[in-house]
Design a protein around this nucleic acid. Sequence first.
DNA 1: CTTGTTATTCTCATACTGAGATTGTCTCAA
DNA 2: TTGAGACAATCTCAGTATGAGAATAACAAG
Lengths: 247, 247
Amino acid sequence: MDESEFLAGYDPRAYPAVAVTVDVVALTIRGGGLRVLLIRRAEQPHAGLWALPGGFIRPGEDLPQAAARELAEETGLAGLSGRLHIEQLASYGAPERDPRMRVVSISYLAFAPDLPDPRAGSDAADASWHPVDKLPELAFDHDRILAHGLERARGKLEYTPLATAFAGERFTISELRGVYETVWGVPLHAGNFHRKILSVPGFVESTGETTESGGARGGPRAKLYRAGDARLLHPALLRPAREEQIR
Amino acid sequence: MDESEFLAGYDPRAYPAVAVTVDVVALTIRGGGLRVLLIRRAEQPHAGLWALPGGFIRPGEDLPQAAARELAEETGLAGLSGRLHIEQLASYGAPERDPRMRVVSISYLAFAPDLPDPRAGSDAADASWHPVDKLPELAFDHDRILAHGLERARGKLEYTPLATAFAGERFTISELRGVYETVWGVPLHAGNFHRKILSVPGFVESTGETTESGGARGGPRAKLYRAGDARLLHPALLRPAREEQIR
DNA sequence: CTTGTTATTCTCATACTGAGATTGTCTCAA
DNA sequence: TTGAGACAATCTCAGTATGAGAATAACAAG
């Protein structure tokens, strides 16, 4: 039997049915804090609970494409494609994670600068940005997925220029520091941060411009930068080490 | 309609059939080089080609469990559970990656110290360890999965004590350096490496013993160490930076 | 015994980091 | 209008980490 004969007689139904979904952990910085996009489920199961935006993949659709589609569909946030960073996070397939049937979920992690309020899409009763430190109960195992996404985001700030994806087109060093402080949840030394950012090749490049005025509460005008061409930070910008993480 | 009513009337067949597989990138060090476990496919499609060990997940089986089972089944390497490190790598779901049907594959990465030769299991015509720098043509998109696994392994040596998973129960600093040199493919400065390993808290701990004799070509007896209790290396042990990776 | 190999430890120059201080510009409120 | 406080940007200094090379000593093999 060669390959074409084999395929002609192949019966996909011989294998147990498994559904595949994508779920998206979309993060942004709003109101001075890190927030995640959640939708309130309109349908069973877990109707009424908050959940990560996501849904079943469609035939002929690649996984990242499905993640981007679900994000747009369920939140009304169209045209995200421009400044949206999206990457695969992990997959979850515990047998009982969805009461309907065996569901394997591929999670994606997305970052974006401050975005407009979402509006609930087809399967959602509501959609909004929730502070990650004050979360409601989540459907399925989405609390675990979200925790994983947060840890990934915190780690990626260390060795990639990801922080610039949370900032606008042009930004000041202080704004960039604000991104780090918000995502990591720790204050950073302004002087040392400044020195570090400018010394990492390709992290930021100067625009030659400055802000129109000083800060809201005083201070001189700040120079404006844009994201540089580095894909990895070298040397990395490490979080203050926490002993308990190491062991 | 409450949740139980909903579930009673739910029809899993309403969704398009998708199959979920796990594929395992199992790495070890053998014959002075880094090797990956491959099986030769006995069945269509791609019969006769080499592929990563893997297969369909079973009902009621969690993903890591499926990965461990496939690894054991297809290679005859039982009892790996002891000193085997296994972690999720990534998922692949491009629509045409498998000619049979829509298949989403969850890949796992496994590391082990030198293991006996595998023997081919049920679905395999052959199984063996292949040097990663001299690979045959691989089935499906397994070349991409393998490349991803290698890059992950190389990166994890930097900030985790993973290298000890490639070494035996007790090992010398030089053996550990050999692991790094083999996986990274670069020579390291013996003195600096030695200093670094001993200065990272929790990486290795002394056994108080030494090797029975000196090295095969001379040199004093080396002290023996075992893996320490650190889960992260701090500070990390970075690869010599390659400029082209950064941009 | 001699030569070559290797484990282990040092030295020294350079680079990077954390903490704190300095300088000068800007906003705000008295 | 002016003084106080905020903040951008730069600098200092000590402590720590790294890369390169060298020194010392133990051991294998001829």
